[in-house]
Design a protein around this nucleic acid. Structure first.
Lengths: 155, 155
DNA sequence: ATACAATAGCGGCCTAGGCAGATATATCTG
DNA sequence: CAGATATATCTGCCTAGGCCGCTATTGTAT
């Protein structure tokens, strides 16, 4: 009842899953190219993955733990530890042990990290607008609705 | 002229790029879970990434080179070499040096690899249908159109 | 208070992809 | 034919994510 695909007619290379994977790869690649081209950000050597974590940290208020970030981005905890290591080594993020709950480590963007934020947002917006060229606001809303629905169906 | 996002109102966590990345991650995770649950395929230890390469190899005719696969899947050549290594070690794929052009290595799914194909297609279809639940055929077509458009805009 | 979970972060091992350089082979050009 | 160029694959080094087990700390139940 209402299945989109049927095994007998299914074409992997035409499927929504395949297309979505491709688009995602291309968007991150485009972001990486923009980052490499920007005089400021290329000096910091920020990648698209680091970018996403940093935007999340600066943009939604500081004083976040690694676990918070993991939940928000559905990220693995071990991967996050190493990600923070890289960001810390680049001087964009600081670790600060919490004195009340000594298990916790608060993350804070450094001044340098915060300074890069506006330019990062601009890039993110520019890349997405480029990929969405030709779509109207209603189309974008529809697309967003489909994606939200799919995320919900993931359970 | 027709930009979807504006820096002043942009919400990273609500953006189409963010949502798409999330959906892609969830779809592959779901596929990995299905693969792990299947008696046959779990024995082979096939991951979702290997799955995609294998489907592409079996489904679109054998006698393919690594480079062909790289182009079709926008994959890195070095990464593909190692991917083939893993698939070969599992006995799902064979390398066969071409005698006319000795630079070329043809890839061929083994009997075992081909035998797993129908079940793989079923899974792929099942996972995608689950994620697309609640969408009609017109919605799916619209979504596919948006994605195709975005891929085209990638240049 | 002691034992038992639950939580936060870390580290090792695996798969995985991008990039640059090396090698072998094939093709093009003078 | 000789030299340059292009192509196919491989390898090493990097970032990156998932899984599992470890330790330290905190919370809970008996």
């Amino acid at each position: 009842m209402g299945n989109i695909y049927d095994v007998r007619t299914y074409e992997p290379s035409q499927s929504i899953g395949y297309l979505m994977t491709r688009v995602k790869v291309e968007m991150l690649a485009a972001l990486d190219r923009e980052l490499a081209a920007d005089p400021h950000l290329s000096a910091l050597g920020v990648t698209s993955a680091q970018f996403i974590v940093l935007v999340r940290l600066v943009g939604t208020g500081n004083r976040k733990s690694a676990t918070d970030l993991c939940k928000e981005l559905s990220y693995d905890a071990g991967a996050m530890t190493r990600m923070i290591d890289r960001l810390e080594k680049k001087g964009l993020v600081r670790r600060m042990r919490c004195m009340k709950d000594r298990r916790l480590i608060y993350l804070e963007a450094t001044d340098e990290g915060r300074a890069a934020y506006p330019r990062m947002l601009e890039m993110s917006v520019a890349v997405q607008n480029r990929f969405l060229r030709g779509l109207g606001q209603e189309d974008a809303q529809k697309l967003k609705g489909y994606l939200t629905r799919m995320l919900h169906n993931a359970g």
